[in-house]
């Protein structure tokens, strides 16, 4: 059975729903504090997937995801690089995306800045898939929530063109909520196994968290939530390893 590691640090706060979504997708899950990895109490090698959930890691002090990113690149660089080289999937959601981007594991010189509204935003948005990846089988669009204050994807034109050409932009917003360059909501690394995604698929794994499920017919309500597909794809990718 696939075993995933959900990484938590001080200030992580979406860990429970992320664990639930992974279990629903068929994975065994361990919730592990970064100190347990740094102190070698737990070994990343023993896992098939790594998920960095949302939250305010270290209070988002300095900038969102900055301190966890520093720990990842200064203390866990080798472990994470080996994990990526073994072609195991890594998914960073929201704060996890910020962490992956700022630690360099997404192989791109880009960043996530404060929303152009200047405010934290909690809302449901539509995404469209831009490129195929191991995370996106069977997905064309996704309707899931965003919950962030620093989600504005930013890179210069050269970098944006590179991402486009290498087909590494996986999801775009249909109505850009935060001013992201090229409407970018999620990207992937060069080898295609590390994805950063700003919106929260784990918040929509059953229809009773949909923002207007009371308007939907009974048969729709009984379906699984759209976000679950991401986790199912991740588990499938692990099974193929």
């Amino acid at each position: 059975m696939v075993t995933s590691l959900v990484l938590r640090v001080d200030g992580t706060n979406c860990e429970q729903e992320t664990v639930s979504a992974l279990k629903l997708a068929g994975s065994k899950v361990d919730l592990v504090h970064i100190n347990e990895l740094i102190r070698r109490m737990v070994s990343l090698e023993d896992y098939q997937a790594l998920i960095i959930p949302g939250g305010f890691s270290f209070g988002d002090h300095i900038a969102a995801g900055k301190i966890i990113a520093n720990y990842m690149k200064l203390k866990l660089k080798k472990d994470i690089s080996n994990f990526i080289d073994a072609n195991k999937p890594i998914l960073g959601i929201c704060n996890g995306f910020q962490a992956l981007l700022k630690s360099g594991f997404l192989d791109i010189d880009a960043t996530l800045l404060a929303n152009n509204t200047g405010l934290f935003i909690d809302n449901w948005i539509n995404l469209k898939k831009e490129a195929d990846s191991i995370f996106t089988n069977g997905i064309q669009t996704l309707f899931i929530p965003i919950n962030h204050g620093e989600g504005r994807f930013f890179a210069d034109d050269i970098i944006l063109r590179k991402l486009e050409e290498e087909q590494r932009i996986i999801f775009k917003y249909i109505d850009n909520p935060n001013g992201s360059s090229e409407d970018i909501a999620g990207i992937i690394n060069e080898t295609g196994n590390v994805m950063g995604l700003m919106p929260h698929p784990e918040k929509f794994v059953n229809y009773y968290t949909h923002p207007y499920w009371t308007r939907l017919p009974q048969e729709t309500r009984e379906k699984e939530g759209e976000g679950l597909a991401i986790f199912k794809n991740l588990v499938k990718a692990c099974e193929k390893l």
Binding site: C14, N123, V205, Y208
Partner: peptide, 19 residues
């Protein structure tokens, strides 16, 4: 919308509703 009212993913009917 500034308050994260979805975190923990247990919010069934929301503070803002409708189509």
């Amino acid at each position: 919308r500034q308050y994260d009212h979805e975190v923990q993913a247990n919010t069934i009917t929301k503070p803002l509703q409708g189509e």
